[in-house]
């Protein structure tokens, strides 16, 4: 099929705090192909941001990647030193963050920060970098870039700052753009513009996007693939169509039931997922969702389910897919197990 750019295998990230080990990411695997817009969905604390930071090599003390591999274009990233990793960050893989109000350094001009990144990763001289910066600001739709380049972040609105962040992130035409809740802090009207801009630039630059969000609406609009995370583990991964059409994990099902969908015109009751996310200091021994799962079985509390492959693009980690499990409407059962753990 398409060529794989990023291949994450059995990634584990652990924080060694004085209260004990916090396993924020507990063995997840996925891949990103060129042109993909991969959504990573989950509640806060599900490990989606830590996954992103692990790829960037920015997991801070006392945490570190404690297992698994991250292959970027064939290069193992987890083995690189911080200095070597700096050659990838901002150039091959770049990232934009949730809050544009605080993500830009308030004491330097937009241009200064943009040019700094450009010159860090290219051989352009000062004037060329300046010209490139103006060009980038133009690309992300900032009016009068020649003037705006001299502005400080506080002179920009939230939406403009996020555009500037995007300009910075795409300045070296990265292969992958990781966006951690890029629109959560913005007005709804701006959100669509920013998402639209990101997808447009992705196509223009032939890169891919990993979009981290808790908003399934956003996922349905821009993503082609989705990973659903819960308690540091991958619950389900699927193409967007499959996920919304036939969710194969009770957690995904719960998520879908809990979002308002008035587009359909149906008047359905919103169903909240009972309970609270697990304490990752003392994670449940079995499936992390089992304490809240309406379909929890005996084995669920004892052992986490393997990832059952349901189609080329669809797999889910739930014992309901085991042939011995009771049949539940909507859930497929498969003969063979593809065990990832």
């Amino acid at each position: 099929m398409s060529n794989t750019i990023l291949d994450v295998k059995n990634l584990r990230t652990t924080f060694y705090t004085h209260m004990g080990e916090v396993q924020a990411v507990r063995g997840i695997s996925f891949e990103v192909n060129q042109g993909d817009v991969l959504g990573i969905v989950g509640e806060s604390g599900s490990g989606k941001s830590v996954t992103a930071m692990s790829i960037m090599g920015l997991v801070d003390e006392p945490g570190r990647v404690s297992g698994g591999s991250i292959l970027f274009m064939g290069q193992e990233l987890t083995k690189l030193s911080d200095a070597e990793m700096n050659e990838y960050r901002g150039k091959e893989i770049s990232m934009i963050f949730q809050d544009p109000m605080t993500s830009l350094n308030p004491v330097y001009t937009i241009g200064n920060q943009l040019i700094e990144v450009i010159r860090r990763h290219t051989d352009l001289d000062k004037d060329q970098a300046h010209a490139r910066a103006i060009e980038l600001l133009q690309m992300v739709g900032i009016p009068e870039p020649e003037i705006r380049i001299k502005n400080y972040p506080h002179q920009f609105s939230g939406g403009m700052r996020q555009r500037a962040m995007i300009a910075m992130a795409i300045s070296c035409s990265p292969k992958i753009l990781i966006a951690d809740e890029p629109t959560t802090a913005l007005d709804v009207t701006i959100q669509a513009q920013i998402l639209d801009l990101m997808v447009r630039l992705k196509n223009q630059l032939h890169s891919s996007i990993i979009l981290i969000t808790h908003d399934l609406g956003v996922v349905s609009e821009v993503c082609n693939k989705v990973n659903v995370m819960y308690g540091g583990m991958l619950m389900e991964k699927a193409s967007v169509f499959e996920l919304f059409d036939s969710p194969q994990h009770p957690y995904t099902l719960g998520l879908l039931k809990s979002i308002p969908r008035d587009v359909t015109g149906e008047r359905k009751r919103l169903v909240p997922i009972e309970g609270t996310p697990p304490d990752l200091l003392k994670p449940p021994s079995g499936c992390p969702f089992s304490p809240r799962c309406p379909y929890a079985m005996g084995i669920c509390v004892r052992e986490a389910a393997p990832l059952y492959t349901l189609s080329d693009t669809h797999s889910a980690s739930c014992w309901l897919h085991h042939k011995g499990a009771p049949v539940v409407e909507g859930f497929v059962q498969v003969e063979e197990e593809s065990v990832h753990e």
Binding site: L58, N86, N105
Partner: peptide, 26 residues
């Protein structure tokens, strides 16, 4: 701990630059 330090690091700036340019002035 600020977000813009994370941004600077995510842009591949060296530790030296992150500390002495971006952090120190603030």
């Amino acid at each position: 701990r600020q977000d813009y330090i994370r941004t600077a690091r995510a842009n591949g700036l060296s530790r030296f630059k992150v500390i002495y340019k971006h952090a120190l002035k603030n």
